[in-house]
Design a protein around this nucleic acid. Structure first.
Lengths: 145, 145
DNA sequence: TTAAGTGCAAATTATTTGCAGTAAG
DNA sequence: CTTACTGCAAATAATTTGCACTTAA
């Protein structure tokens, strides 16, 4: 599981605060908690709303589930995160906003980064006339063998 | 809109019936209706449950929404269709079961085929050890320009 | 002080399920 | 006949929203 989140420390709170201020997102208490869980140790994360909510609860942070949803949405709007849709059930939110491929583990329903450097798209269908490509999502579905 | 479905004719019903029997799916009245709307003219289609349900209603076929859901699921289980997840909101079902790329129209939320021949993936990240790749989904998000 | 953020609980949306009735093999 | 399919309505699951309250700027 991507159950591991950054610990809440002065350092992680500071990193969270920087992250928020870079995008001019108002640093409320709950946003600081969530931000520090997400980026407090500099690692990229792929989380679901529910997962982040539970992590916050475990670390003793008080945030409501609705706020977690609203906050993740706000982080995406601010360009701090990207939403990734994979299985139609839940949304995943990625702290890394670069366009990069993902592994989706069908057994555990987890999402993780695939090395961008190892993906090479030699040719891509051109957008139909009157349209432009806004993003290309590549999801590599894997299963335990 | 992918609102156009095949008309219900003897010919389309027959094609639908063949399609079902190829996969050994029991040809009930509602399955035949839906099958002939979907593949009755030999075209590939990308539908949502709701969309197919409305199309059936418009053509005077009587099917319940729950049955449309169950039927699409049954068609997927039988290998006749594939489910494609794109936006987390609704599921799309594709009558073409080959692994091929899609265009997703962000404005209208429609899904269409992208020419497979124009996609060339020169290198793909290898599956992490202990895992094997089951499928690679490529969604090219486009928007009206 | 004031617009923006938060927490509930209630509302929505997409989809599934239970169960009694209906039809295919 | 017998098992699978269908329809409806009720159940779920993920997410959003309305509204009174709190807080950052």
């Amino acid at each position: 599981m991507d159950t591991s989140f950054a610990d809440i420390t002065d350092r992680s709170m500071e990193m969270g605060a920087n992250w928020l201020s870079r995008a001019q997102v108002r640093p409320t208490r709950q946003r600081l908690s969530l931000a520090s869980l997400l980026v407090g140790d500099g690692c990229d994360r792929h989380v679901t709303a529910e997962g982040l909510f539970m992590a916050a609860k475990e670390k003793g942070e008080s945030v409501s589930l609705a706020t977690v949803y609203n906050t993740l949405r706000a982080f995406c709007d601010a360009g701090l995160m990207t939403e990734i849709t994979v299985d139609g059930q839940k949304s995943y939110f990625d702290t890394c906003t670069d366009d990069h491929p993902h592994f989706f583990w069908e057994d555990s329903q987890e999402l993780s980064d695939a090395p961008s450097a190892e993906l090479e798209i030699a040719r891509l269908p051109k957008a139909p006339e009157g349209a432009e490509i806004s993003r290309v999502d590549v999801i590599i579905r894997v299963r335990r063998s």
